[in-house]
Nucleic acid binder design. Sequence first.
DNA 1: GCCGTTTTCGGCCCGACTGTTTTCAGTCG
Length: 588
Amino acid sequence: MTLSNRQIADIFDTVADILQLKGEIIHRVLSYRRAAESIRELPRDLSAIAAEDKLTEIPGIGDTLGDKIKEMLTTGKLGLYERLITEIPVGVVEIMRINGVGPKKAQLFWKELNITTVQGLEQAARAGKLRDLSGMGVKSEQKVIEGIEALSRRQVERVPLGTALPAAESILGVLRALPQCLQATVAGSVRRARPTIGDIDLLVAVREMSDSPAIMQIFVTLPNVARILGQGDTKSSVELLNGLQVDLRVLPQERWGTALQYFTGSQAHNIKTREIALAKGFSLNEHALSPVDSNGTILEDAPKLLCETEEQVYHHLGLQWIPPELREDSGEIERARDQTLPRLITLDDIHADLHMHTTWSDGKHTIREMAEAARERGRKFIVITDHSRSLGVANGLSIERLLEQQNEVRRVDQALNGSIRVFHGTEMDINADGSLDYPDEILVQLDFVIASLHMSLRQERDQITLRLLNAIRNPHVDLIGHPRAQMLPNREPVDADMDVVFTAAQQTGIALEINANPARLDLEAQYARRALDLGILLAINTDAHTIEQMDLMNYGVMTARRGWVTPDHVLNTWSLERFTTWMTQRGQ
DNA sequence: GCCGTTTTCGGCCCGACTGTTTTCAGTCG
């Protein structure tokens, strides 16, 4: 029983927590955290990478952590971790998850009052026992109580991008309407389009900082604010009723570029850009590029470089402007230095949507309604892909109804008279036993075939992988829909051997989907990037069950951009002629 | 513990805010 990437990352994170509690030097702690983060973003199994002896090629993994990974892969445990958890009660680590409580306070509560659980801490706080500890007071005690309440209120650690982005836009709408606001935007992980979001970062530019307090006051009194976490002239934080934290920073217009760059992150990307700045004799922060001496001390008399745009910031560093979705320190800085960043796909490149549902299965609109709505959105062709017969809960189509539907699709296609082309396909289930839900003699009659996993998603790795392989190797299947079957923020992807899946896809020329629904975003970016590296084609589809859901395409595009995807590799950027040629050739 | 267009040793991003402080420590991002 070998450990998964996720389990190994979790162990490293817990090791970091405990080391921090023990007062270990922060850089050693951060090494474990960086390693955990890096491992979570891997598109391959650590065991496969270890077999190739390439663990230390992973960013943040050196000889020591490489050996620790090997230890976990071979023995299923980590000696260091086993030792550490005997030294620190697990509840104390849990206490550090309370907002406002870090390692020092957790340590204090434990050592002074023998508190080892969140529950115990809450009781002590309510009994007024914390206020007399050194460095604590009545206010701090109250903050602990509020932090614990917020922790229990919070349903999930992270929310889907599809929840966070509209929430951010809604607040930005209010702020942009203020006369003091010159411009406003979202930064942080929302701007980088991470599939799930921990908190929202907003920026507002003003002419004079004296305009700031009024803006802050509006912000912290928005109707959906549950509590104010902090309020200053340049920075305020609130928690919304749904538990989401929102940070707002106000800054002068002439510093917009440095601030936007700084607050967009990621942290790893910023560390790199700051190092580059230092190498060029500047300290880079959210305010400016400041000249430094050889010790790195800022020269107060020397003029600072202010940047109103991000392009200026990157230019001063000798870099191409880097799209936010790439800013994860995963090779983008090196490419920007060589001026060889790819031309990423944009929403304008998308001409088609190859995956949508209608009233024939579990969709809410008819074939004609979906086609006309797609046409209004500028699509040149679409494929109707309702569910197949096994998916009873979604009113999947029997073979008879499928063929009947084909006639209807042909009628609609003709009626629309070339203003948009409508093709007939299916989203066919890959059954639990690995069989496909329609026989080949039916599939061959369809224009386009998607095969997807919907049921028995918790099967063993071998069986899940076999199911995907059966679909990939069927010459009539054109696309694997949402290949990992994850649901954000909480349903884990299937446990498939993605190395094997990718190899098979590479051999057969099948395409893989980036499902644009924000509850899926599957393939995720790191897998999309690997697919691209292997020359595997992709398609970005909305999987729309309603007309409105056709507007979610942008989430798929953002995910693709995070995966360095260029338009040419994506089926639905192609011309109608190129697409039909590809479809026809595949069916042979 | 990682890492190298200053370095295989000695750095490692740095500022805002809060609450407790008589000048700063803790937390966060």
